[in-house]
Write a protein that binds this DNA or RNA. Structure first.
Lengths: 124, 124
DNA sequence: CGGCGCTATCTTGCATTGCATGGTTCCTGG
DNA sequence: CCAGGAACCATGCAATGCAAGATAGCGCCG
C-alpha cells in the first residue's frame, strides 16, 4: 500500500464518502486561492480537517480534470530533496468557478440544515 | 416529458447536482421523521427549498434503495382521488441512520466553510 | 557501489448515486 | 368510451470518489 493513503476515517464520526462529491473539487480550488501548491501538500492540508481526508487516488485524477478543463495551470519545480513537484495555480476561470461555488454553497448548506432541524416546515 | 419533472434550476443560483449526492437520501429520511409520506409529496417538499429540487427519476430509485436496505417501510393506501399512493415510514434502522447523519453533517459543513473562508489556516 | 525506503506523480477499474427518458396503472370528466 | 392527469416504476447514462498498483528521483546505510 502506498504510504499516505487514507482509509475510512471511522474515528470520531463516519462521514459517508459520498458527501464529498462535488465539494472536494472546490475545496482544492479554495486551497489554491492564495498560492500554488502541489499534490501531496494539498492532500496534507485537506487531511488537517479530518472529515476531508482523502487519498492520492482521488486527488490526482481530480487535479488532472481541473487542468484539462482550464481551472488550474501547472508548473514543474524541482524539490530541495526528492522528485520534482507539479505545482497547481488558479487560472482566472478557476477563480470564477470558486466564486460561483462560494455563492452557491451557503444556500445548499442552509437547505440541509433546514431539513435536518425543521423537516415539517413548522413555524419554528 | 412527465409533469412535475424538474430540470436544472439555474434560476437564482446553480448548485452542481453532484452536491446532492449522499445528502438527498438523508433529507428524505429527515422528511419522514414525523409521519409517513408518499413519493410526489416528498418531491414537492424537497422542491420547496429550491436548491433541493429534483425529479421523479431520482426519488423513486432512491426510495426503492431505502426500502431494500431496510431504512423505510412501505404501505399502500388509497387516494381520495387518483391511483393509490405508496407511503414510506421510517424504521428504527432508518432513525439510526438519520441520527448518524445528523451527527456527521455539522462536521462536514464546518469543514467546507473552513476551506472557503480560511483556506490558508490563518489565525482568523 | 548496491539495495532500501521515502517522496511524489499518475493510471486503471470499480462502486455509488443523481438524472433523463419513457412506460404503466388508476381515477375523473366529457 | 376516450382524453388527461396523478402517481408509480424501470432502464441506461454520467459524474466522481476510492482502492490498488505502477513508475521515477533522491538520499542513506551497509
Amino acid at each position: 500500500m502506498v504510504p499516505g493513503d487514507a482509509k475510512n476515517d471511522d474515528g470520531g464520526g463516519r462521514v459517508p464518502s459520498q458527501l464529498r462529491k462535488g465539494v472536494l473539487e472546490h475545496c482544492v480550488l479554495a486551497l489554491l486561492r492564495d498560492e500554488p501548491k502541489y499534490g501531496v501538500e494539498l492532500l496534507a492540508e485537506l487531511a488537517s480537517v479530518s472529515v476531508m481526508t482523502t487519498s492520492q487516488g482521488t486527488i490526482y485524477p481530480l487535479l488532472s480534470r481541473l487542468r484539462r478543463e482550464g481551472f488550474v495551470d501547472t508548473e514543474l519545480r524541482e524539490s530541495p530533496s526528492g522528485p520534482p513537484r507539479r505545482y497547481y495555480a488558479l487560472t482566472p476561470l478557476g477563480r470564477t468557478a470558486l466564486a460561483e461555488f462560494a455563492g452557491a454553497w451557503p444556500r445548499f448548506r442552509d437547505a440541509v440544515d433546514h431539513f435536518l432541524n425543521d423537516p415539517q416546515g413548522d413555524t419554528a
